[in-house]
């Protein structure tokens, strides 16, 4: 399978993280954080999500590149691009 799940998943968490931390940034000191024990949970957790998303995205990308650079069995030619269904 050529689509590494970590790429889209990383992207999704990365975007969610950005949305949440920006929202948290703009609502600093708001009364809405009374319910989350006084913590700005959007900002804190948004940053955590963002870091997780970036890490997943980069891992997935690195793996895609590694697969793309793998030579075809028995030759020195790198496989490159798509069209290889057997791994």
């Amino acid at each position: 399978m050529n689509l590494d799940l970590r790429v889209p998943m990383g992207l999704m968490f990365l975007i969610v993280g950005v949305i949440m931390s920006l929202f948290g940034l703009f609502t600093r000191g708001s009364v809405i954080y009374e319910r989350s024990a006084g913590m700005n949970i959007n900002l804190i957790w948004g940053v955590v999500m963002f870091v997780f998303g970036v890490a997943m995205f980069l891992l997935g990308r690195a793996n895609d590149k590694r697969i793309a650079a793998k030579p075809i069995e028995g030759t020195n030619r790198p496989l490159g691009g798509r069209g290889h269904g057997g791994h």
Partner: peptide, 11 residues
């Protein structure tokens, strides 16, 4: 509903 403010509630 009790602990999550809007934003993380969506999550």
């Amino acid at each position: 509903l009790y602990y999550f403010p809007t934003g993380i509630l969506g999550l």
